[in-house]
Simulated scan of single mutants.
Amino acid sequence: MSQVLIGSVLAAMSTGVGALPILFLKNTLTHRWRDTLLAFTAGIMMAAATMSLIPEALSYGGFVPLGIGLLLGVITLTLLERSIPHIDLEHNRKGIAFDQKAMLIVSAITLHNIPEGLSVGVSYASDAADTGNLIAFAIGLQNAPEGFLVALFLMNQRITKWKAFIVATLTGAVEIPMALLGFYLTSVVSSLVPYGLAFAAGAMLYIIYKELIPESHGDGNETTSTYSFIVGLLFMIFLTQIF
């Protein structure tokens, strides 16, 4: 339990670490740099899902639990996204009142962080301890640029840097109870482990294809983003080989 708590806290707090540079930033980043960061994190998450979560789910339960869990992850995220307003972090240039915008930002990012927290918890519940550490690391790397982009977006809405930093940091906190919930459920009912791992993989694949890749291709930076995606993929595969 202590290991999953530490891993989930570190992954969640990476959002705040990523938002930290906003306090020292004088000028906004170019779309090219933001698209590059998004594509890089998409590559990291793709490798984590396909090289770790999916093989683990197959080894625990075979194809049927993998297929069911993966589809449940995709469907759940689809339903959640339809019920919570989505914020286009990269391409929305219209100013909206602070209170409304802040609430929508928190809701949208919390939506993404729920399956990420579950992913960490479920991964620690498997017999392979390294899987939990690897997924927590991958989620943490994904959270850092996400926190930066959220804080940057809030700052562009004329919110003070400190408020933007605090709001962005708090969006990652939901991952901690979600990780503990995922760990508890799969630990108590061991047969849920392959379904949980596949659910986490499905949720991550949904975020990659539905959110990160389209966002990184929205400003004419497709080639740069493609290379960044490949580098992120290779980077995560390299880490899996080391650990």
Rank of each mutant, 00 (worst) to 15 (best):
M45Y: 10
S225E: 06
L149R: 01
I44A: 05
S126D: 14
L5H: 09
A108Q: 05
T41F: 06
A198Y: 08
T76M: 13
I87M: 11
A39K: 04
I54Y: 11
T226V: 07
A102D: 04
L29V: 09
P55V: 07
L205F: 10
A203T: 11
F98M: 05
N156F: 05
T28Y: 08
Y209A: 13
L80M: 15
I135N: 02
L104Q: 14
G67V: 11
H31Q: 05
L5D: 07
F235A: 10
T224R: 12
I139L: 08
L180Y: 15
M155V: 08
L234M: 13
V122K: 04
L239G: 10
P194D: 07
A201Q: 01
H86G: 08
Y124W: 06
G182E: 07
T50C: 14
V188C: 01
H112M: 04
K26Q: 12
E175F: 01
M155K: 13
Y184W: 12
M45Q: 09
S52D: 14
A144L: 01
I54V: 15
I230Y: 05
L212R: 00
M45E: 07
Y124L: 10
T240F: 12
I114A: 04
L89G: 03
G67P: 01
T240M: 08
G69Q: 03
L20Q: 01
Y195G: 00
F148L: 00
I242Q: 12
Q142Y: 06
R34H: 05
L134Y: 14
A173K: 00
G43N: 06
A201E: 02
H91W: 06
P177F: 15
I6Y: 14
R82S: 13
S14C: 11
S83R: 11
S190A: 11
F165E: 00
T76R: 00
T15V: 07
T186V: 12
T240I: 11
A97P: 10
I242P: 14
G132H: 10
A164P: 07
N27E: 15
I114V: 15
L197S: 04
